[in-house]
């Protein structure tokens, strides 16, 4: 998944259109985009609107995935959020500010209870974990390994920068460590990694540079906070037609040479190369 577009969960007209902008996924946000006094309002709206949005998207944009960012485990809202989302058919939950494997286990357990209550298969609801703090970044691998429900990491740069006392728009190298650590942990867990949302909407060039950098560090995609960011993000995180051709050639030559290590145009096709080829084709397939 190359792009995830955030949409506040208390604005009906934006929620209905969220899937139209070409992003691979949309995230309805019950957390930062909703004022405290409106948490109940937003939750009920999402519960009421989600089935209709899903049904409508299935007909016009069937490949678009829907996620919901619930409120954090340090708030009194998250259990009600889970209930509302899972109860209305939600299958992907984005959890903010996760810092430990224990928190993942807590949510996983709450989800199992809900799934049993609603008679849906245990484990069907998946988690995207937001790593937004130094502790979260340090604990990344343990967090990712804590439950098979975890299918992706998402980096939250704003909070991370606050904690360290650095600027979001400072030298790129300052965020290389958390990014690399998250991408590495994601790979170790066999899950995807999404880069942080970039809030400076008027700086299109900086967005592209950030995407290129994150991709080079091993991220699969990035969050977007405005439709106009989607095309650039998709573009940067897509593999080129050339790369897709290469990947197909690699796997084709593999089929021909079932035993031992094969080579293609003078290049050894060993495990890492094969893994790369699979990743490219999986991305190309998922983006269709």
């Amino acid at each position: 998944m190359r792009s995830w577009l955030y949409t506040p969960a208390n604005t009906p007209n934006r929620m209905i259109q969220a899937g139209m902008y070409g992003s691979d996924g949309i995230i309805f946000d019950l957390e930062d985009a909703v004022a405290l006094s409106e948490k109940d309002e937003a939750r009920l709206l999402l519960e009421g609107l989600l089935p209709l949005i899903r049904a409508s998207l299935e007909r016009t944009h069937p490949a678009v995935k829907i996620a919901v960012r619930i409120n954090g485990l340090d708030t009194p809202y998250w259990q009600d959020d889970l209930k509302a989302v899972v109860g209305s058919g939600g299958a992907i939950i984005r959890v903010p500010k996760v810092e430990s494997a224990a928190e993942v286990e807590e949510i996983a357990h709450a989800l199992s209870l809900l799934e049993a209550e609603l008679h849906i298969p245990d484990g069907s609801v998946h988690l995207q974990v937001l790593l937004e703090t130094p502790r979260g970044v340090e604990e990344a691998f343990r967090i990712g390994a804590a439950s098979p429900r975890v299918i992706a990491f998402s980096f939250g740069a704003e909070d991370y920068c606050s904690a360290l006392g650095i600027h979001r728009n400072g030298p790129r190298v300052a965020l290389d460590y958390p990014r690399a650590r998250i991408a590495s942990a994601a790979s170790a867990c066999g899950i995807e990694a999404y880069d942080a949302a970039y809030g400076f909407l008027d700086n299109a060039d900086a967005l592209v540079l950030e995407c290129a950098h994150a991709k080079a560090l091993g991220f699969h995609g990035k969050s977007a906070i405005h439709p106009k960011q989607v095309a650039a993000i998709n573009g940067e995180f897509s593999f080129s037609a050339q790369e897709v051709r290469e990947a197909k050639a690699i796997l084709a030559s593999l089929e021909k040479n079932q035993d031992g290590v094969s080579s293609l145009e003078g290049r050894m096709i060993d495990k890492p190369v094969i893994a790369w080829a699979h990743r490219v084709l999986a991305a190309a397939e998922g983006n269709r």
Binding site: P12, D40, E41, L44, L45, E47, G48, L49, P51, L52
Partner: peptide, 17 residues
């Protein structure tokens, strides 16, 4: 110009409140 499910969700919220 709210859709019906939006009207119903807002009503539910008002009732709860």
């Amino acid at each position: 110009q709210a859709l019906d499910c939006v009207t119903q969700a807002r009503l539910r919220c008002a009732v709860q409140r």
